[in-house]
Amino acid sequence: MVSGIREMKRLPVGIQTAGWFDEKDPAKSFRFARECGFESVDYNIDTIIRIGRDEAGNSYSFMDKTDEDLLQYYEPFKAAAEVNNIKISQIHAHYPTYVVGDEERNAYHIKVMERILFVSRFLECPAVVIHPTKTPDRGQEREINLTMCRNMIPAALKYNVMICIENSLKRINKNVVQAIWTDVEEINWYIDTLNAEAGKEVFGFCLDTGHSHIVGRDVEMLIEDLGSRLKVLHIHDNNGTEDEHLIPYTQNPGNKGMGQIGWDGVIKALRKMNYEGALSFECARGVKLLPEGARREGMELISAIGRYFRKAIIEG
């Protein structure tokens, strides 16, 4: 295993940083996370990278900083996390990480990924999550995604950080439908193929519970079939028709054709597969729906759900 996932406390309860984290004041932000009951964060570095293009047509972003400048930027971030006993369980990379037909930009994306992996190493974060590239031609799609992932292997090995591919969605006639990395056979094929090429376990999976639910997948069965490839989670709920990123248990489970995720099944499968990674919630929208004065309570509710999940996974 490349990463230090197993060195972390088993099943830390985490939250994505998007939506509440103040990048300019990490001390306050990590203290808030701890006060709300969280033990880890999914750092949304995607929200600050902001890739643009200058007048000469060259790409630029926040990640162009030198090693020294990046370390200087992230030192207070790391210190604040440590003081508050918060682990960075995973980092969410920018997306897209590949643009069909734009080789200048694609080379730049790989450079940005290398910088993210550098930051991950510094923050002692064991996993970086990436989205796939989606194209209408499945053959081309496979080649593009394999190439994209292969190009990340050297940096992943250098910094000893795992890359987790995430199940995704696409829309046809405004309807949400399955996309690449939705079905377990395909997911496992990608991970096993890429790891064999890397000669080491460099790739793993990030299961987005909401994305699976919305395309009608049995999340319990998916977890079991992924087995030890499952490294990180994006936990959130929806009504089965829109990718809403809501707090688990807030939808009516009895609504015909809609309803919430079968959380009992998710817990059962994570227990069966001896999952040990973070229980990381990606519910920024669910919190943001609440009036500002109730958002702290919303965050506390999420961490309480996480602790319940952990207890149920460990104790059955």
């Binding site: 248990y249 807030t250 939808q251 009516n252 489970p253 919430q260 609440l290 009036p291 500002e292 004065g293 109730a294 702290r296 309570e297 919303g298 506390e300 509710l301 309480a304 759900i305 319940y308 149920a312």
Partner: peptide
């Protein structure tokens, strides 16, 4: 009450705190 009963029992007080906070915001 239906919404609260959807949550696991030990999580319900936290759900109720959210509701009370929403009430105070209102």
């Amino acid at each position: 009450s239906r919404s609260i009963h959807t949550f696991p029992e030990e999580v319900r007080p936290h759900a109720m705190k959210v509701i009370a906070a929403v009430g105070k915001c209102m």
